[in-house]
């Protein structure tokens, strides 16, 4: 997993609530091994039926094109379990989402892929969005080491995430590496379980 320490880049406000994983990437756009999956981010809203960019879509506007940070409404990433939603975001270059709440599976998937999903209360998220919209340049710094979001014009917002998630992101550590160190505990569990719950094991 790619490390996350300090991220500076354009931030895009998409303040609609309940942006779901089908919005982020439609099922038809994620079938099979997709090269350049970032091109398919927000497929339905971003392109018309001929595949041309819709100028009204915010990421198609020069001010926000190439954003690294997404500021969103509540329950972002609700819906399906498709990890392709996270891959589409990171494939585009977005490494941080700031929202009041998330769909639970999306939230987990984000951490597994080095995408930082910051949770802040609705008023604070709205304030961040307003600061971005009002700035000459919509550029924000997300500093995971200090737990700070630095807004375009000198505003500062603090955030925190669970310590184990923070440590993993800062180190770029995959969860699988932790799991693989616990083989002994797993062996003893399964040996005991085979005798206590033989029906689980097809006996």
């Amino acid at each position: 997993m790619e490390k996350f320490t300090v991220l500076r880049g354009k931030a895009v406000p998409m303040m609609r609530a309940n942006i779901n994983t089908d919005d982020i990437i439609a099922a038809q756009a994620m079938m099979g091994k997709v090269e350049r999956i970032g091109d398919r981010l927000f497929t339905g809203a971003r392109y018309d039926s001929d595949g041309n960019e819709r100028p009204e879509f915010i990421l198609n506007q020069d001010r926000y094109r190439g954003s690294r940070i997404l500021v969103a409404g509540a329950n972002f990433g609700c819906g399906s379990s498709r990890e392709a939603a996270v891959w589409a975001l990171t494939g585009y270059g977005i490494r941080c989402v700031i929202a009041p709440s998330y769909g639970e599976i999306f939230h987990d998937n984000s951490y597994q892929n080095g995408l930082l999903p910051i949770i802040l209360d609705e008023a604070t998220v709205a304030r961040i969005a307003a600061a971005i919209e009002g700035a000459d340049e919509p550029v924000v710094t997300v500093d995971l080491e200090r737990g700070e979001i630095r807004l375009p014009e000198n505003g500062l917002v603090r955030f925190s995430i669970p310590e184990e998630r923070r440590a993993a992101l800062l180190a770029g550590m995959d969860e699988l590496d932790i799991l693989l160190t616990r083989g002994e505990a797993l062996n003893s569990f399964q040996i005991r379980d085979r005798s206590e719950r033989p029906w689980i094991w097809g006996a």
Binding site: I105, D108, N109, Q112, P162, E175, L179, L186
Partner: peptide
């Protein structure tokens, strides 16, 4: 419960998930 593809890898490899 539903999981992501990375967690599919975790379960395939270790038959466990790390959870709160």
């Amino acid at each position: 419960w539903g999981i992501g593809t990375t967690q599919v890898l975790h379960v395939l490899a270790t038959q466990m998930l790390l959870l709160r």
